[in-house]
Write a protein that binds this DNA or RNA. Structure first.
Lengths: 156, 156
DNA sequence: TTTAAATAGGACCAATATAGTTCTGTTTAA
DNA sequence: TTAAACAGAACTATATTGGTCCTATTTAAA
């Protein structure tokens, strides 16, 4: 359905909130209360983000989670990688090899892979810092300019 | 999981095959045999494509399907629109309004919508004609150039 | 006129994937 | 020593999707 999973959605929500207070350590209970989500779900998300080193954790009483690095260095693509369990790709065959018997002479597979690359690149270009505040129009314009060439832009 | 549904995948397969013989009328049975897919599934796909006017159909004996317009005028985004039943969007809240109670003061929703716009634009830019043959490197380069600015490209 | 080939639409079932929960274990501050 | 907190893994329920089937309609050909 061309959707990111709900866990990924929650992940961006949690991380953008944490990005607002980079120093603080957040417990699962804290975040659950503030974000109106169930603690077990948030816990699941943070564990996965921890495994992918997007957050650091402190165990034991008074423990919690914090961003592993500045928000500008965490991309939406990385969040997706951490929270989606299947590898990135718009079609199964373009994400993983050997899933289709006609793969040998399939001409569209390579094209899906190229589409993947471009979409991926878009997602790589959006950082958590971009997600925190309303994206300034300038940066949106940049994204659009990146995706759609301005005709005035020299073809080279 | 950020995947297009299998029906969409089949749809691109079917349409790219049909694009190779723009004049011919294809029956479901024909396509099923050539593409090694089950007829009922192909039928389902073609019916949906017909409803969205990507293919035309001729009923009755000797009937079948044909592309409704040249392959260059059919985009991957249109195929997705025809075959995915949920509206386009990477998150539920960014595709449809009113699905989340904190929508009012949610700051990331608007950003997801902007991401949607860019991804959508990428998919709009790929036509069935592009999918038919191996995308020439030139056009791939264009896609990448569109998504990622060449630094030599004047910022204006 | 009849028959068979073909699409149209919709309902239905089965399989899969996801969301969410729960349990057990480990760590650590108080 | 206790309680707060994370780690990991298993489990269940639900939702979505994939796939099939049935009935109706259309039309060429016999």
């Amino acid at each position: 359905m061309l959707r990111v999973s709900k866990l990924t959605d929650y992940g961006t929500l949690v991380l953008t909130h944490m990005a607002g207070f980079p120093e603080r350590l957040f417990s699962v209970a804290d975040l659950a209360q503030v974000l109106h989500l169930n603690a077990p779900t948030i816990s699941k998300v943070l564990k996965a983000l921890g495994r992918h080193e997007l957050v650091t954790s402190v165990r034991g009483a008074r423990g919690g989670y914090a961003l592993a690095r500045p928000a500008a260095q965490i991309s939406v693509a990385q969040i997706i990688d951490a929270l989606e369990d299947q590898p990135f790709g718009l079609t199964e065959c373009s994400a993983t090899a050997g899933t289709c018997d006609i793969e040998g002479d399939c001409r569209i597979r390579a094209n899906w892979q190229r589409i993947n690359t471009v979409v991926r690149r878009v997602l790589d270009d959006v950082s958590l810092a971009d997600m925190v505040q309303p994206m300034p129009l300038a940066s949106e314009a940049t994204m659009v300019r990146r995706a759609l060439p301005n005709r005035k832009c020299s073809p080279q």
